[in-house]
Structure formats: structure tokens, C-alpha cells
């Protein structure tokens, strides 16, 4: 592949994975192209079963691609898997530690597997625990930690060798809202402090929204959309505007006016209420209201709703992410 690909954190071309079951071949991932720049936080968003984890496992050397190629952290995934392994961290969805094991045992042995000495593992482990607000758990069994603590410990395990790129699979699943917000701020500071590239999968809108610089949207094993969250919303959905009027007659006039706006979509009139979508609604709305005043139409209620990623997803795939 291109020498330029080594400048990026991840470049994948035509990455494919199929599974053979007893009766058929299932194409879990049907050819993915993606690029992640160094220092980016990229969210990989899609419903359960879309192929997120399969893609992640391929990029992490846990699953051999059926086809395609990738440069991960500057190393060829197929030819230099060990080089990839040295440079990446991976935090699996289901955790990384044994309940019965002491935190110190898991951290130090993990560091040693990356070629670090026991002392160095201890030093880095304690520093990382402190950075993730986990002071004082060194001698405790992993199973005695709270869900949020255990998840942060997983992240410590994935960072012990100071990887330049870290993969997080569904980092906040199963955590309460406070623990999630806390985890997100830690992930963000990871990038800000150490310049670590973060590639995370999620099926939560709010997580993708809160954390990522850029989103890749996957459905049925293909990437269907790509861009910053705000840009995707603007481009693919627009704001939802609802006008309430005095009479159905006024509503009909408003429907016509709204329909004439540039880029207006889904203009619907229900009784004395008009719904439509338009990009950048906040700047369009004053002009619309002026035009309505000229027609002697005065709305009695105006509502503007920012689009959500769910709207984007609906627009891209024709179904809701929550289905």
C-alpha cells in the first residue's frame, strides 16, 4: 500500500470478513475503507450486529481479514502483525481482567507481556491508576471494583505500554450516567495529554456525539456515512421546525412558503400545524417569519429542534439506530 498510509494512524482498504456457519457463509464485514489520522478520536457508530466489533478485531490482529489490507500504526496488518501489536492498545467490550486476580497482578503481567520489566510495569501502572482516579485499588481483587472503576482499569490495561493508538470496544456499556461522563472525560484527556489516537465503537448516540472528532457510520457491514457529528447532522438531516398557526388556512399558506425555502424537506401540514426540516434552521427562521408577516400570517408557536445522530442514521439507512 501507499507509503503515505504510514503517516496515518489507520488506513484500511477493502477489509472483508466472512464467517462460515454450518449452512451458509455470512459476510459480517463486506469491504471497509477507512482512514484515521494521528491524534484523532474517531467513533465507529452502528447498531448491534452491524460489524463494528468484527472490524475492530481485524484491525487489532484478533481476527484475520478474509480479504483487503490495512496499515495500522504504520505497520502492515498482514505482514507485520507483531509490529502492529507493539504499537496498539485494545480494550475489549467484555473486560480484560479476572475477578479473582489482584489489580497489581493483572497490570504488571500485562506490562511484562509487552517486554517491560516488573518495576517499570509497577511504576507505569500506578501512574495510570492515578491519572484515571483509581488510587488505592492496587492490592484489591478486580472483582471487588465498581463497574465504572473496572472499566477504567480495562483502559489502564490497554495503555500500560503507552500505545500510540488505542481501540475501545463499546467503552461505556453498562455504566451509569455519571460513570459514563467521567469515563468520557478521561478518554478525551488521554488524547489531549498524550496525543493518543482513539478508535472507539459505540451504539450510543450520546457517546458518539460527546466523544468523537469524527464519526464513521456502519450498517450491514458497510460504511454508509462519514464526517464530524455536527457536519453530518447539517448535511444529512437539518433542523426540525414546527410552526403552530391560528387556522388551517394559515397553515396551508405557511406550508407553501416553507416549501419554497432552499433545501427544505419533509414539509407536512397537519391541521393548523406545519412540520419541515431545513439545514441551519436558526438562520433560516427569521426570514421565514418575515415572509409570513407579509402574508398576514402570524404563527402562535415556533419550535426548532436540533437534529440528533439518530436522525442522521435514519436518513442514511432508512431505519432508526434503536431498532
Amino acid at each position: 500500500m501507499l507509503e503515505a498510509a504510514k503517516e496515518q494512524a489507520i488506513v484500511a482498504r477493502g477489509l472483508k470478513r466472512s464467517y462460515k456457519t454450518r449452512t451458509e457463509t455470512v459476510d459480517a464485514v463486506q469491504g471497509i475503507d477507512l482512514t484515521v489520522g494521528r491524534g484523532e478520536i474517531v467513533g465507529f457508530l452502528g447498531p448491534n450486529g452491524a460489524g463494528k466489533t468484527t472490524t475492530l478485531k481485524m484491525l487489532c490482529t484478533l481476527l484475520e481479514p478474509t480479504d483487503g489490507e490495512a496499515i495500522v500504526a504504520g505497520c502492515d496488518l498482514r505482514r507485520d502483525a507483531r509490529g502492529v501489536k507493539r504499537r496498539i492498545g485494545y480494550v475489549a467490550q467484555g473486560g480484560t481482567t479476572m475477578r479473582e486476580a489482584k489489580v497489581s497482578l493483572e497490570i504488571v503481567s500485562q506490562a511484562q507481556l509487552y517486554g517491560l520489566s516488573r518495576q517499570e510495569g509497577e511504576r507505569r501502572g500506578k501512574a495510570l491508576l492515578r491519572a484515571l482516579d483509581l488510587d488505592g485499588i492496587w492490592d484489591r481483587p478486580c472483582g471487588s471494583l465498581s463497574g465504572g472503576q473496572r472499566r477504567r482499569l480495562d483502559i489502564v490495561m490497554g495503555l500500560i505500554h503507552e500505545p500510540e493508538l488505542v481501540f475501545l470496544d463499546e467503552p461505556s456499556t453498562g455504566l451509569d450516567p455519571q460513570a459514563r461522563a467521567n469515563l468520557w472525560s478521561h478518554i478525551r484527556s488521554l488524547r489531549d495529554q498524550f496525543g493518543t489516537t482513539v478508535f472507539l465503537t459505540t451504539h450510543y448516540m450520546d457517546e458518539a456525539d460527546a466523544l468523537s472528532d469524527r464519526l464513521l457510520i456502519i450498517d450491514h457491514g458497510r460504511i454508509v456515512g462519514e464526517g464530524a457529528s455536527a457536519e453530518l447532522k447539517e448535511r444529512l438531516s437539518g433542523d426540525a421546525i414546527t410552526l403552530t398557526l391560528r387556522t388551517a388556512e394559515d397553515a396551508a399558506k405557511s406550508q407553501e412558503t416553507a416549501g419554497a425555502l432552499e433545501n427544505a424537506a419533509n414539509v407536512v401540514c397537519e391541521g393548523n400545524v406545519v412540520h419541515f426540516r431545513v439545514p441551519n434552521g436558526a438562520s433560516v427562521l427569521p426570514g421565514l417569519l418575515r415572509k409570513l408577516t407579509d402574508l398576514d400570517v402570524e404563527p402562535i408557536g415556533v419550535e426548532i429542534a436540533r437534529p440528533t445522530l439518530d436522525d442522521v442514521f435514519l436518513n442514511l439507512t432508512g431505519r432508526s439506530l434503536r431498532d
Binding site: L62, I88, Y90, G94, T96, T97, M98, R99, Q110, Y114
Partner: peptide
Amino acid sequence: INEWRSGVIDRMMVTPA
């Protein structure tokens, strides 16, 4: 099986060990 379910096996297989 217990170690695999805890994610330990996958975690170790991603290391260069």
C-alpha cells in the same frame, strides 16, 4: 473458559507475546 469469558485471552492475544 472462565478466562476467555473475562476477556483475558483476547487481551493477551493482542499483546506481542
